[in-house]
């Protein structure tokens, strides 16, 4: 191969356009003895790649050890590498923690709502309490997904529950009906 052909191939090589055969020709040329002075700078590239291909695994027992592991898998014993085992523990403990958190939250809020319902039997205020509670629960469930930043919004639930306690007091001090529509209806009667 002439020097000018090599130069052209090199140009093609650096543009990423050579075929495997052309690259092999380049490699043979530069690893061979007679490389002109002005092209000598490219020699280490091909020497480097050639050397890198000689790298081999150090562990001589590798195949034996692997054969043992594979045989065990075949026998149905699942082999989990230590890395994997640790990440699985994290995975499952994450799930467990979130389930606990959600059930915990649901129980605390539900209990409050049930207690309020039990204290007063009037159909009006139970309805209001129910809608308030379901609104509050919807709010909770809607916001749970937004993550920790949004936990602050849970304060709104506290407000809602305070409102319900107010209704409770109103009911005890009798017949002041909260809904203005209802007030107008009863006064007309």
């Amino acid at each position: 191969m002439t020097t000018s052909e090599i130069e052209q191939l090199l140009e093609k090589y650096y543009e990423g356009n050579t075929t495997l055969q052309e690259e092999e020709a380049l490699s043979d040329f530069f690893l061979g003895g007679d490389v002109p002075e002005h092209l000598a700078m490219h020699k280490p590239v091909f020497a480097c790649f050639d050397e890198a291909l000689k790298l081999e695994m150090q562990d001589t027992d590798f195949e034996q050890k692997l054969g043992f592991i594979l045989q065990n898998i075949k026998a149905g014993n699942e082999v989990v590498s230590p890395d994997n085992r640790r990440s699985r523990i994290f995975y499952f403990s994450g799930i467990a923690a979130s389930i606990l958190l959600i059930t915990g939250l649901l129980f605390t809020f539900k209990q409050d709502v049930f207690n309020l319902n039990g204290k007063h039997q009037g159909s009006m205020s139970t309805e209001i309490a129910y809608t308030n509670a379901s609104e509050a629960l919807l709010l909770v469930s809607g916001n749970l997904n937004h993550g920790l930043q949004h936990v602050e919004r849970l304060q709104m639930v506290d407000k809602a529950i305070k409102n319900m306690e107010l209704f409770n007091k109103f009911y005890q001090y009798q017949t002041i009906i909260i809904n203005p529509d209802e007030v107008s209806k009863t006064s007309k009667k």
Partner: peptide
């Protein structure tokens, strides 16, 4: 596989572990 893993990880033992895991 070992050469490929070694190129990316620059760590022979990790590279061998990766090859073993790949075979598994």
């Amino acid at each position: 596989l070992f050469r490929f893993a070694q190129r990316m990880l620059e760590h022979s033992e990790e590279a061998e572990d990766v090859v073993q895991e790949a075979f598994i």
